[in-house]
């Protein structure tokens, strides 16, 4: 079971960067906490989503 932003998602075995592009995330505008630790963008393409992973993706919009 994989949880992304609190929802159970079927993404076992996917490379994280593939999941992000499938879901139309813009990499420069997001930050990811992966199993409780911040995950730098340089790791998106070598991170494989495993069963039990808990992922939080925060997406920013402009304005301030």
């Amino acid at each position: 079971m994989i949880k992304i932003n609190g929802k159970i998602v079927d993404a076992t075995g996917m490379i994280l960067s593939d999941y992000l592009s499938r879901e139309n995330y813009i990499n420069t505008r997001i930050a990811i906490e992966y199993n409780g630790e911040i995950l730098p963008k340089s790791r998106y393409s070598d991170t494989i989503i495993n069963d039990g992973d808990i992922i939080e993706i925060v997406c920013f919009v402009g304005g301030g």
């Binding site: 420069t28 505008r29 919009v61 301030g64």
Partner: peptide
Amino acid sequence: DDADSKAMLVETVLENSKKIVVASSGM
């Protein structure tokens, strides 16, 4: 103001320190 800068700050500060960040998105 800029979304990319927001994400950059959050990622860099959380990765390189134990500090807490209070950020903003959508107002």
